[in-house]
Design a protein around this nucleic acid. Structure first.
Lengths: 117, 117
DNA sequence: CTGATGCATAACCGAATGGTTATATAAAGC
DNA sequence: GCTTTATATAACCATTCGGTTATGCATCAG
């Protein structure tokens, strides 16, 4: 997966309106008007947000009568979570153990380079 | 946790340079010059990225001689991962569907050849 | 003290972002 | 066919972003 896909996913998630849209879609498909209802922004603004989400692969859209339903497409969320997974050990270490972990890694790195800082 | 904290974290992660900086810091603290070395951008650009990461709470910084070391602060990464966790069931289901689809295609291919491997 | 090193800050620039209003298109209802 | 409903698109605007160069400030080395 190209790094620019991660760019798009994290960038899409950076906006609270878009996160709220995803949360709404996790409860079922919805049209633009329905998605716009909880917010004070205009309909075109919501359409733009949907285009961003679609561009990041986070939703898929299809016509259904005169509506155009958005459906959650969670794959890219999994990819982003997988990227974060590399850091799980860091945030799960308790605060006092974190320093030890970093020292450990730092020392291992120094040894691999053959340098003594 | 305020939603603007998630905003800042996801927005910080949206840039590949900043993700690379975090990856580097996961191997130990580093100064600005050392962090800038792998990139073709200028030193002030790296300083700006570090300020963004610091604003998102993803790094902490302290003077060490004439250097100013950055240290990974993984807490907010955990918060962001926790937010994503709500969708885990969705993307795992999506992978299950993918497996089913692949099984289907494999079987169709085998039948078209009339062979059972 | 002087000079070099590491970093921050300011001023600037072009492109992207998030919003608006106004208008166009597509399907449904009468 | 005409109107309403749902959505997209265009044009515009202010702000933010990611980069630059130039410069200032601290700290170490001599």
């Amino acid at each position: 997966m190209g790094s620019d896909q991660l760019d798009a996913v994290f960038s899409a998630l950076a906006d609270p309106t878009r996160r709220a849209i995803l949360a709404r879609l996790s409860q079922g498909d919805a049209g633009v008007m329905e998605l716009a209802e909880p917010f004070v922004i205009s309909q075109p603004a919501v359409s733009k947000h949907l285009k961003v989400l679609e561009g990041a692969g986070l939703i898929r859209r299809e016509r259904r009568g005169q509506a155009r339903l958005s459906r959650l497409e969670p794959g890219p969320l999994g990819e982003a979570a997988a990227w974060m997974e590399r850091y799980r050990a860091f945030w799960e270490a308790s605060f006092d153990r974190l320093d030890a972990l970093l020292d450990e890694l730092r020392q291992a790195d120094a040894e691999s380079k053959g340098t003594i800082p």
